[in-house]
Amino acid sequence: MERNGNLIVKIRGEIDHHSADRIRHSVESQFKSSGARNIVFDFARVSFMDSSGIGMVIGRYKELNKIGGRVFAINIGSELSRIFEISGLKKIIPCFASLDEIENS
């Protein structure tokens, strides 16, 4: 879903090495066809994430950085909050409570 230049990526289920590649390919192709400038990852339905998810998000951050786009994260629950902090992901990916919060910021 594209809204105001943001591609909203709603991930469901678990993000590990097994699923991260599939998610990456899906996000890349959606981003190319969407014409969006930024990516917003919505983690509301993510029940598990390990460092493969960190790699996948940082990968998109690097790609978009080259073309002046940005990556945001929304709906990071308490389950994922710690891995976002430990990995330093929170320092480079702005995290918001909702899409509205990004658009109003």
Binding site: R24, S51, S52, I54, G55, I58, R82, I83, I86, S87
Partner: peptide
């Protein structure tokens, strides 16, 4: 090149 974060052992140590 494979988008590995390099944080695997760090996560194990922290958790």
């Amino acid at each position: 090149d494979e988008e590995r974060s390099g944080m695997g052992f760090t996560v194990m140590e922290e958790f």
